[in-house]
Simulated assay, not measured.
Amino acid sequence: MHHAPLFSGYGKEVSPAFLDDGRRITTRFAGLTLSTVFQPLFRRDGQAPPAHEALLRVVEPDGSPLAPLEAFARLNRLGHAVAFDRLCRLLHVLNFVRQSDGDGSLFLNVNGAHVLGLIAGEHGSFIGTLLTRHGLDPARVVLEIVEDRIDDLARLEAAVRGYRRRGLRIAIDDFGARHSNFDRLWMLNPDVVKLDRTLIVQATANPQARRVLPRLIEIIHELGAEVVCEGIETAEQHAIALDAGADLLQGFLLASPTDRLQRIGPV
């Protein structure tokens, strides 16, 4: 177990230590045990996945699981939103670099509180240093931002510019949920748009939603972005996503999250 030099200065109560058991790297933060699992994203042909999304798993001191959103909310209340978000990305990068063969992309989630918690000009500074230190090409990293949870559009746009200056790609996550709108897509010009899973669920039950889905994807393609249909859990949803023109697909039907990168397509 060792302390991470990138995380000096946060105080003993949140100073992270990493444990390497030879299979995966875990860490502890404010009493919580954190680990990484990866869920692959598949192209339409279903061959070996070109990308994996890193997902957080959190365990309480008593061994019970804690939902990541609840963990982020707790650490935000304690004033550690930025430190916690950075630590999670460091953990995910360490686990990805250990397994990666030099190919494939890594999708990393960025918490909205982190975006709003940084001062102007800081966005991308930590992740840039992190990727350089661990030899990961920024072009292989896609930062997922849930844009409709961020009300300060100027700060959001500045964050995207900062990440892009460092060579990172940008994905808008959960598009189509709550208050997502095309104005933000035109403003942010993302590389990838991940459709909220409610859209594919609605398309299985509502013929009108099924007819609209290909048009939605076509508009996003015209903006120059790739489209991910996530939350694919049934063969019918898979067929609808393919028919609608999705570029990438993700969901439990294709592969569950595991602590290992998946090398082959779904059987």
Rank of each mutant, 00 (worst) to 15 (best):
H2M: 06
H2T: 12
H3V: 13
D20E: 06
D20M: 08
D21M: 04
T26V: 14
F29C: 08
L34A: 02
L34G: 04
Q39R: 11
R43W: 02
A51L: 04
G63W: 02
G63F: 00
G63I: 01
S64I: 05
A67L: 13
H80D: 05
R89S: 00
H92F: 04
F96N: 07
V97L: 07
V110G: 11
I127H: 05
L131A: 13
G135T: 14
A139I: 08
L143N: 02
E147L: 08
I150W: 06
L153M: 11
R155Y: 07
R155Q: 15
R155W: 10
E157W: 01
E157H: 14
A158Y: 08
Y163R: 07
I172G: 06
D173V: 10
H179C: 09
L185K: 02
L185V: 01
N189R: 14
K194F: 13
L195E: 00
D196R: 06
T198R: 13
T198E: 14
L199H: 01
N206T: 05
V212A: 08
I217S: 03
H221K: 08
V228W: 10
G231F: 02
Q237V: 09
I240H: 02
L242C: 11
D243Q: 15
A246S: 11
D247G: 09
P257G: 05
L261I: 10
